Amino acid sequence: MLASLLMLIALLCAGALLPVPYAEMSPGPTYNTLGSHKGECVLQISEHKGCATTGGHLNMTTVQVTGSEYKMNLIEAVYGWLAHDDVVVPHSTLYPDDKTPDEVNQENAEEFTQSQESAKVAALRQLGKRITSHVIVGVVQRDKPAQGRLHAGDVIKEVDGSAVRAPEDVAKLITKHKPGEKVTFSIIPAKDAAAAEKKNQEATARKSVTVTTEKAEDGRAIVGIQAGVDYTFPLKIDIKLADVGGPSAGLMFALGIVDKLSTGDLTGGKFIAGTGTIDEKGTVGPIGGIQMKTIGARDAGAEYFLTPQENCAAAASDKPDGLTLVKVHTLKGAVKALKQIREGDTAALPKCTKS
């Protein structure tokens, strides 16, 4: 018995010291997009109603993960596997081997910023507001021909005299050339475009820039830029929420903006949480860690959870008691679901099922 006890103690000590290649996910905090965080309204809009005072919630949800440098031991991994509220995943799932932790964090920050822009566009379009879009230089690659000639934020109006209406037009027009040939861009410099936008005016002064193409690995002609889209909004919208990353807050940001710019109250005083990516057209996309988010939402007090339809089956397979999972695929559908909740017509809600 003594030998067995000593063996058990030795194994427990080994388990406490033995690192394993796993990381842990657990329910994170939720944030009311209608309310405040650290003394500031989460959504600050030039034509807004201020922070929520009706008691209603539209909470975005998060997942907490162990840090990239954290070394989980075997005992912690086993406990995580057995715990209902935690999920243990391979370390490479959260921190891919081909990326540094800084690169992962940067990607998460960029996705969070993009989700905010998409939410603004989708919300304002839902409300029928006029939005002006521009094709811009999104990224200038280092040591490529465009470096020093074009700059991030430059508005691209034409390429070789042909009008540019979408980001893909830029690549099509450039690749019509052979490597070594010149491409002429008609642009509005980023600083001029920003100054005009600040004055709520349309920038008109154009500049011609010529760049010599080079040969890409696949033989195409390139100049070393990635085109993107920028928008001019009819009002100023700022989202004040730091220390959050990834794209999954898009839907709840969009709903918060719609609420603040609409008459009345979208929630009817109910505690509603949710998650989901969103694009400029208002399409809601799936996210990761859905079970962690439903648990976090219910722990915070949510009664209803807006769930991307692609996540519905997984969410319904382990639904927290007292939480109604509402299936959504578009911003328009989410607004309709809120109306049903507000009016007490919950029988008509599109609810998530296990299949």
Results as ranks from 00 to 15, higher is better:
Lys281Cys: 01
Thr210Asp: 05
Val42Asn: 07
Ala193Leu: 05
Ile187Cys: 01
Ala315Asp: 12
Ala195Tyr: 09
Val159Phe: 08
Leu127Lys: 08
Ala300Arg: 10
Ala302Ser: 12
Asp102Tyr: 07
Lys240Ser: 13
Asp279Ser: 09
Leu338Gln: 11
Lys199Asn: 14
Ser68Met: 04
Ser115Trp: 10
Gly56Ala: 10
Lys293Val: 13
Leu12Asp: 02
Ile156Asp: 09
Glu280Gly: 00
Gly344Thr: 05
Glu103Asn: 09
Gln309Arg: 12
Leu173Cys: 04
Glu158Met: 05
Arg130Tyr: 08
Lys293Gln: 13
Ile341Trp: 03
Ala3Trp: 09
Asp238Thr: 14
Ile45Lys: 02
Ala249Gln: 14
Val328Gly: 00
Ala227Tyr: 06
Gln201Asn: 05
Asn73Ser: 08
Pro189Asn: 02
Ala16Lys: 09
Pro179Val: 04
Pro286Trp: 03
Ala227Trp: 07
Ala194Cys: 00
Lys71Thr: 14
Leu306Trp: 05
Pro350Leu: 06
Ala166Met: 12
Ala300Cys: 07
Gly35Asp: 11
Leu58Asp: 08
Ile257Cys: 06
Ile272Gln: 04
Ile187His: 04
Gln147Val: 02
Phe112Tyr: 14
Thr307Cys: 14
Phe305Pro: 05
Gly148Tyr: 08
Ala254Val: 11
Gln201Ile: 07
Lys319Val: 08
Gly128Phe: 07
Leu11Ile: 15
Lys270Ile: 00
Leu6Trp: 10
Val135Asn: 03
Leu18Cys: 10
Gln126Phe: 04
Lys351His: 04
Leu43Ile: 14
Ser186Gly: 08
Lys176Arg: 14
Lys215Trp: 03
Ala194Arg: 13
Val121Ala: 10
Thr267Phe: 01
Ile174Glu: 05
Gln340Cys: 00
Glu310His: 07
Lys182Ser: 01
Gly39Asn: 07
Ala14Gln: 06
Leu8Arg: 05
Asp86Ser: 00
Asp85Phe: 02
Cys41Gly: 12
Arg130Asn: 12
Phe185Ile: 09
Glu168Pro: 00
Val140Thr: 10
Met7Tyr: 04
Ala3Gln: 11
Cys13Asn: 09
Ile341Arg: 03
Met292Ser: 14
Leu34Ile: 12
Pro96Lys: 05
His48Glu: 14
Val42Leu: 11
Thr353Cys: 01
Leu82Ile: 11
Val65Tyr: 03
Thr232Asn: 12
Arg298Pro: 02
His177Glu: 11
Gly28Phe: 06
Lys172Gln: 15
Ala195Gly: 09
His84Trp: 00
Thr210Lys: 08
Glu111Thr: 09
Leu124Pro: 11
Ala347Gly: 01
His48Gln: 07
Met1Leu: 02
Thr54Ile: 01
Lys199Met: 09
Arg125Phe: 07
Thr204Asn: 05
Leu17Lys: 12
Pro145Lys: 01
Ala300Val: 05
Pro234Thr: 10
Val183Phe: 04
Lys178Asp: 11
Glu280Thr: 13
His134Ile: 04
Leu5Pro: 02
Ala315Gln: 11
Gly264Leu: 08
Ala163Pro: 06
Lys332Phe: 01
Ala14Pro: 03
Pro320Met: 06
Ala313Asn: 13
Glu76Phe: 03
Gly28His: 08
Gly161Glu: 06
Gly138Asp: 15
Leu338Arg: 05
